[in-house]
Simulated scan of single mutants.
Amino acid sequence: MTAELSILDLFLQASLLVKGVMLILLGMSVVSWAMIIKRSKVMQQAFSKAERFEDRFWSGIDLSQLFQEVQARKDNLTGSEKIFYAGFKEFARLHRSNDKVPEAVMEGTSRAMRVSLSKQVEELETHLPFLATVGSISPYIGLFGTVWGIMHAFIALGAVKQATLAMVAPGIAEALVATAMGLFAAIPAVMAYNRLTAKVGKLEHNYMNFMEEFSSILHRQAFAATQE
């Protein structure tokens, strides 16, 4: 009896439509797990890189020297480094031509850093909408397969003269597997989406704090130049 009710046997005995639903859910689960693992690594690396760069930034190094170091690998910058690079590059460009108008310098610098921050957050949120989609629609896809399977089982049952539980149980079990697979795909996706979204929010907050602190430093430099 155990072999007859194994997941594989239930899948093989299911109707074509229910099999299709199960395969779709299995595919969604596999893809979502791949994205969960990948995005988790990306978040971990983002935290590590931000911490290392900010330690370097607050070590007392000259900002021009730090900019030269960052510029040497400008094609591989992320997070705080990217915001610093965009801000300092714009600051230096505007400061050369508007050294007597610090407000204009800081406005342009802040704009460049905000654009860079927006791009960094957008990259961090890559694939998160897919996880939200899997989490929200997988149970309904599984429920659709279950309803169809149970309906199919009862239609077949109506064709016989004497119905027994043994006749209808396998068909209902096959159908319920679709609901189970829907939940199996949805629950990890929802949990991962919430966790990763929280990490994106924390990183965004860290980036914004760094941007404000960096802006304060540049602000003092911009206004100090007008006093010389």
Rank of each mutant, 00 (worst) to 15 (best):
F184M: 15
A112T: 03
G201S: 10
L196I: 09
L176F: 09
M113A: 07
E4K: 14
F67N: 10
R96W: 09
S15R: 05
H127G: 03
I187Y: 06
A104P: 00
A198P: 01
G20K: 03
N206C: 12
S6I: 08
S32A: 15
P170S: 07
A46I: 06
G171V: 03
K19T: 05
L124Q: 04
L12S: 11
M35G: 09
M28E: 00
P129S: 07
L124W: 05
L128H: 00
R111K: 14
I150N: 01
V70W: 02
L5I: 13
E125H: 10
T179V: 07
A50S: 14
T126E: 08
I24C: 14
V134W: 01
G135A: 07
G145Q: 05
L66Y: 08
E174I: 08
L17M: 09
A92D: 05
K119I: 15
V160D: 01
E122N: 12
R73Q: 13
F154V: 10
I141G: 02
L117E: 04
F91N: 01
E90M: 03
S40I: 05
A104M: 11
P129V: 06
S136G: 09
P139I: 03
K49P: 02
Q45N: 15
Q221H: 13
R73A: 12
E107C: 09
L117W: 08
A132E: 02
E51C: 11
V30M: 13
H219P: 02
S40M: 06
S29F: 07
A156Q: 09
S118N: 13
E228S: 13
A178D: 01
L26D: 05
R52N: 14
D75C: 08
K19E: 00
R220F: 07
V18P: 00
E122Q: 13
S110V: 10
H219D: 10
R73T: 10
L17C: 04
A163R: 04
V190T: 04
V168K: 02
M35H: 08
S64W: 10
F154K: 04
Q44G: 10
Q221L: 11
H152P: 02
F88A: 02
E212T: 11
E54N: 11
K82V: 09
S215H: 15
I172R: 03
A173E: 02
M181F: 15
G20R: 00
F223N: 12
A34M: 15
